[in-house]
Design a protein around this nucleic acid. Structure first.
Lengths: 178, 178
DNA sequence: TTTTCCATGTAACTCGTTACATGATTTC
DNA sequence: GAAATCATGTAACGAGTTACATGGAAAA
């Protein structure tokens, strides 16, 4: 009755809980990991991570322990609780069973493509094609970085979608070319 | 120095200007059109549309004329100005040449797929597959509604992406099945 | 010695959404 | 006579971002 909440938060909570499930960490560490390894999957910012960890703590999904090494800044180590494990499982099942809307900013322009002269339209779309090719290369490269890990599933899916996008674009350009 | 603005606004401004380019309309009419015909491309809400139209007006991209028929509520008819046409062209070129990030909530779950027993994971993904199939059918149906119009380009692209997503999912399920 | 890294957070802001207010008018 | 439609907006809220504050430690 009080849940529901945006898909956004659920997705981020799932991410944090999933990361904490492998081992307990403090916020800085978590955000660092996300930025360095998961940049293609999410782009959570630092204050957001801290805020969500605090919220997960207040919800009883993670425990908070303050540690300090020598004179370094004290850090809050978060560990997932049994309640957190349960929440994680629920969120995971829900997330896996659902497919997002797939709405993209780039769709709007396509509707008005006729406004441009064919030659110019083709020029724009070719720049886009180059961007797509670059992204595909980047994904292929980063797949090597995550061997046998679940992250590869997400990257694989992205790869498949990007290939489809590229192929569609190439066909469309060919159709438009005078 | 004061521009930049999120991609979000640009995309919506492009949409509104593009709609007004075909003919002048008032806000209610525009939002109605979006809701009825463009629900797959965007989901702009009514207050957002009014707010943006007001902003476009203050920026000089559209003119505002108050009309009233009998005792009905007065309405503000917006028409695109020469400055608006120029802005539209710029936004369109920029939008066409760019490809969005393609980040989806559903990617997070895939990273943690190993947590579930294979049988359960497959069950979740099969529900997702069914959703995808339904969306594909819906898109195919709505393509018929927009004959020869630019909207079909966006729908076509969606269709291609959804097919790729479905095929990838089907392959993944087959690989997971024990 | 200045920059970067570690580690956490707050404050102000933007964008967009929901829910609500208004008031006439057509439809059931 | 109740409900939906027409037409515009405001107010409150939520999520997330940017920019900033703090302060010691390690590296350049």
């Amino acid at each position: 009755m009080m849940s529901e909440g945006g898909r956004g938060m659920d997705e981020r909570a799932l991410l944090l809980l999933g990361i904490l499930r492998s081992h307990s960490q403090h916020g800085y560490q978590i955000h660092d990991f996300i930025e360095k390894n998961l940049s293609r999957v999410t782009d959570m910012k630092k204050p957001t991570a801290y805020m969500l960890l605090d919220r997960l703590h207040r919800a009883g999904y993670v425990s908070e322990t303050v540690e300090q090494e020598g004179n370094r800044p004290p850090r809050k180590v978060y560990a997932i609780t049994p309640a957190g494990e349960a929440a994680f499982a629920d969120l995971l099942r829900e997330n896996l069973a659902q497919t997002g809307p797939l709405r993209q900013a780039s769709d709007v322009g396509l509707m008005f493509l006729d406004y441009l002269a064919p030659a110019e339209a083709v020029a724009c779309l070719e720049r886009r094609l180059a961007m797509l090719a670059a992204e595909i290369a980047a994904i292929t490269a980063s797949q090597v970085q995550h061997p046998g890990c679940g992250v590869n599933l997400a990257l694989e899916r992205h790869h498949a979608l990007l290939l489809a996008d590229r192929d569609w674009l190439a066909r469309t350009i060919a159709r438009l070319r005078p």
